[in-house]
């Protein structure tokens, strides 16, 4: 695979993770469990939508077909979205939202740490900016995982259940194919093994403090990176794309 094409596909994956998760988290706005947390969740959503915007615009440039970030965000079909299955999962209760975010942040932080030294300048710049935000996200979600895990019996059971439900999607975080191989060889992205080691360490450490147990069921569910999604994504896209689909070819 040619480098430019690989980079386009890779940036799209990163972008779609931010876009879809940002959309999910934004669903909380106005409904958070306490006012302070409502503000914090909205901040998370804002950061993710901001990352998605930078990444999608860059993907549009790399593709070179005249599509901008909005065209990529709102006018693709479901099969063309390349986000992780993890991030499209429905919000559930606050604990599930936090666990989903934590499992994601624990991956994004080491990833952006490496990507800020990417040989691709544009990607490096986006990673450097996003890293600052992601560090806060991981701190925030780690604290909540620990608080809920080691809080009351109810909160412990709830968040353990969320961990159990989401665990099967975590392996996909380290999915690797030709796209990755080409970019690793060009020093554009790090190897997923490096990231996985750090992710595992963070997850083990936080879950231990939270008195939570890593599920023994190791069934792996993946497909998002290739465009095969769960049933949850279609509804999300129907809502997100509503205006662009109902009123085509207009500016807003």
């Amino acid at each position: 695979m040619e480098k430019q094409k690989a980079l386009y596909e890779y940036v799209l994956r990163l972008a779609d993770d931010s876009l879809i998760l940002g959309h999910r988290v934004s669903e909380w706005c106005g409904h958070g469990p306490i006012l302070e947390e409502d503000i914090a969740l909205t901040n998370l959503a804002l950061d993710l939508i901001g990352q998605a915007t930078s990444l999608l615009n860059y993907a549009g440039e790399l593709e070179g077909k005249g599509r901008d970030g909005d065209a990529l965000a709102f006018l693709r079909y479901e099969r063309e979205y390349k986000n992780l299955l993890l991030v499209e999962q429905t919000n559930g209760d606050f604990g599930k939202t936090i666990m989903r975010q934590f499992l994601f942040d624990a991956f994004r932080k080491p990833l952006f740490e490496k990507l800020q030294h990417s040989s691709d300048q544009h990607l490096a710049a986006i990673a450097e900016k996003s890293l600052k935000e992601t560090k806060y996200h991981l701190k925030h979600t780690s604290e909540w995982v620990i608080r809920l895990g080691d809080g009351t019996e109810e909160s412990h059971n709830r968040i353990q259940e969320s961990l159990d439900a989401l665990w099967k999607y975590t392996n996909e975080i380290f999915y690797k194919d030709d796209i990755d191989s080409v970019l690793i060889s060009e020093n554009i992205i790090p190897s997923s093994e490096e990231i996985k080691a750090e992710w595992t360490k963070t997850v083990n450490d936080v879950l231990e403090q939270a008195t939570l147990t890593i599920p023994s069921n190791n069934w792996i569910q993946e497909g998002g990176r290739k465009g095969f999604h769960t049933e949850a994504l279609g509804y999300l896209l129907a809502e997100m794309q509503y205006m662009q689909r109902a009123y085509p070819n207009m500016t807003w």
Binding site: G69, D70, M243, Q244
Partner: peptide, 23 residues
């Protein structure tokens, strides 16, 4: 309307605005 905002800029601005109200 946050989840149905018509483009990325409008979505971000609306989110920021509603967050201001919470503040």
């Amino acid at each position: 309307w946050i989840t149905r905002a018509p483009n990325l800029r409008r979505k971000a601005v609306l989110l920021a605005k509603v967050q201001d109200e919470a503040g």
